[in-house]
Simulated scan of single mutants.
Amino acid sequence: MSEENAPKGANLKDKKRNTVLTILSFIFLIAGGLWILSLFFDFNTYESTNNAQVEAYISNVSAKAAGHIKEIRFETNELVHKGDTLVILDDSEYLIKVKQAEADLSIAEGNLHSMEQTITTSTSNQAAGKEKLAGDLAGLEKAQKDYERFKRMYADSAVTRNQYDQVLSKLKSEEAYLKAGQKGVEASSSITRQSNINLEAAKATVARKKADLEAAKLQLSYTAILAPTDGIVGERNLSIGELINANQTIAAIVLNQKLWVSANFKETQIEKIKIGQQVAITIDALDSKEFKGKVVGFSPATGAKFSMVEPDNSTGNFVKVTQRIPVKIEFEASAKELEELKPGMNVTVDVKK
């Protein structure tokens, strides 16, 4: 009896195995057919890439003046606000320069006041000279009349020679006084003109010294290095007493108020991506947590065009390499919801067609 049942059991196992193989063959056949069809037709409803990162603006804080560090008022990864003092430099040298500029300005203003007084005196002397000249002119006119009268009288022997000579001498004296007065007025006018020129130069000097003082005060203000914006400070690589040079970067502030994703799509995918399309953003570091976003812009060139050294095949052997074009994607989430995200995090982007 057992010998008769044995073949039946073996046949039943063979049938089951054949059925499974047949089903698997159909599955592989269908899958292969779908794969072949996918080569000619795009059935995917998303354009995807995992070549994408979270981005944010980073503000590099640079020193505007040179000096030794006196105080450091920030720590690594610390939240700072616009206007917060980050570093204070030793300002002793800059204070001396401010005092020197103040002294130079005082001297220049003193010279200006002296020049103004000189012009006042010169103007008064010029006015007095003109008044004296008017008097000399009147004296000359009287002397001329006296001379003409005495000349006729002398011709008629009505006056003596001595009287005539006195009148003639008086005439010559008045002419000399008038000439001297005219020369004095001309000299006074020349002095006044030169004083006015010197006055303008003194005013220019005062203006320059004021500018020098403002520049010295500005340099002094640079000894306090302030945060230009709100954000989180990166690494602190400074120490007390360290010499800082002008334009040297002393800190980097990440502006975490605005985050976006830069996704590098293949050039063959760009045709199917449009501004305003909805995007699913999956964050690798947050256990594939998903955020919504939308496409807001495209790079004007491929990523290779913006690299420091553009790829160039100098051997003459050309190999076409698919280029990547950065696409900017903005989050559709509040700043509160994006607090866990950090610039540089890798993400996967799915753009709905």
Rank of each mutant, 00 (worst) to 15 (best):
L95G: 05
K97Y: 06
V98C: 04
K99Q: 14
K99S: 15
Q100G: 07
Q100Y: 10
A101T: 04
A103N: 09
A103W: 10
I107A: 14
E109R: 14
N111P: 04
N111W: 06
H113Q: 15
H113D: 14
S114W: 00
Q117G: 15
Q117N: 15
T118M: 13
I119P: 05
S122W: 03
Q126V: 02
A127S: 14
A128S: 15
G129F: 01
G129I: 01
K130C: 01
E131L: 12
K132E: 07
L133R: 06
A138P: 01
L140Y: 10
E141C: 06
E141D: 15
K142L: 10
Q144Y: 12
Q144M: 09
K145M: 04
K145H: 12
D146Q: 03
D146R: 02
D146T: 09
E148C: 00
E148A: 12
E148Y: 07
F150S: 04
F150E: 02
K151D: 13
K151N: 13
M153I: 07
Y154M: 01
D156Q: 11
S157E: 11
S157I: 07
A158G: 10
V159H: 03
V159S: 05
V159G: 02
T160V: 01
Q163K: 11
D165H: 04
D165G: 04
D165V: 03
Q166K: 10
V167C: 03
L168G: 07
L168M: 12
L168K: 12
L168S: 08
L168W: 11
K172V: 09
E175R: 10
A176D: 05
Y177I: 00
L178K: 07
L178R: 06
L178T: 10
K179V: 13
A180C: 06
G181A: 07
Q182T: 09
E186V: 11
A187P: 02
S189P: 04
S189M: 11
S189H: 07
S190R: 13
S190N: 12
S190D: 11
I191V: 14
I191P: 00
I191M: 11
T192S: 13
Q194R: 10
S195W: 01
S195C: 08
I197Q: 13
N198E: 08
N198M: 01
E200L: 12
E200T: 12
A201M: 14
T205E: 09
A207W: 11
A211S: 14
L213D: 03
E214P: 03
E214W: 08
E214N: 08
E214S: 12
A215C: 00
K217Q: 15
Q219Y: 09
Q219G: 12
Q219F: 07
Y222H: 12
T223E: 01
T223D: 05
I225K: 00
P228I: 01
P228D: 05
T229G: 00
G231F: 05
G231L: 04
V233I: 10
G234I: 02
